[in-house]
Computed example of a mutant assay.
Amino acid sequence: MYRFLLTPRWLGYLALTLVAAAVMVFLGNWQLDRYRGRTAVNERIDAGATMAPVPLPDALPAPTAGPGSTGPAPAERITWTKVTATGRYDTSNIVLVRGRTVDSEVGFEVLTPLVLADGSAVLVDRGWIPPVPGGSATVQPQVPAAPTGDVTVTGRVVASESGGGAVDRRDGKLETRRISIPRIAKQLPYPVAGGYVLLDQQTPAADPAFQAVPIGHTNNWQNFGYVVQWWLFAAMSIFGYGWVARREARRAAGLGKPRPPVDRAAEPASSASA
Rank of each mutant, 00 (worst) to 15 (best):
W30T: 12
A65N: 13
S162C: 00
Q211Y: 03
A52M: 10
R170D: 08
G225Y: 09
R246A: 13
V124E: 11
P258H: 10
Q202F: 07
Y2F: 15
P57Q: 09
R100P: 09
A117R: 08
L16N: 11
V19N: 10
V228I: 15
L5T: 10
L199E: 12
R178D: 05
F224W: 07
T176V: 07
S69T: 15
L96Y: 11
I129A: 06
V167Y: 01
V244I: 14
V139H: 07
Y89I: 12
A21L: 05
A272G: 04
E105L: 09
N93T: 14
V106L: 09
R3H: 13
R251A: 15
I94C: 09
A22Y: 10
S69V: 03
P208K: 09
D33A: 14
A249E: 10
P141C: 05
R183N: 14
V228K: 10
D46Y: 12
Y226G: 06
G119Q: 10
G71W: 01
S162N: 00
V95D: 05
Y2L: 12
G87R: 02
G164P: 00
F210W: 08
A166L: 01
G254K: 06
A59T: 13
P208G: 13
P141R: 00
V54N: 07
Q201M: 10
G135F: 09
N219V: 10
P130V: 03
Q222C: 00
P214L: 06
P214M: 06
A47R: 15
V115D: 05
G127Q: 04
F4N: 09
L6Y: 13
W128H: 05
I179A: 05
P8K: 08
P144W: 01
T86C: 13
V139T: 15
T218C: 01
V83L: 07
A59P: 05
A20W: 02
L11P: 07
A266Q: 13
G155H: 00
G254T: 08
N29W: 11
E161G: 01
R169Y: 00
R250E: 14
G119D: 06
G172W: 02
V95T: 15
L5G: 07
V244Y: 12
G68S: 12
R38K: 15
L96F: 11
Q142I: 02
A22H: 08
D200T: 14
V213C: 04
P74I: 02
I215L: 14
W221I: 03
Q202A: 07
G163S: 01
Q211W: 04
G195K: 02
S162H: 02
G254W: 05
S180C: 03
R264N: 11
Q187H: 11
L5F: 07
G149D: 00
Y196E: 05
I94M: 09
L96R: 06
T218F: 05
T64N: 07
Q142F: 00
T176F: 01
D200S: 14
F108C: 01
R251P: 06
R177D: 04
R250P: 07
D118N: 14
T39K: 14
Y190A: 08
P208N: 13
P258F: 06
V143R: 03
Q187I: 01
L6E: 07
V83D: 09
Q222L: 13
W128R: 02
A85V: 12
G107W: 00
A137I: 10
L16A: 15
G256I: 00
A85I: 08
L5D: 04
G164W: 01
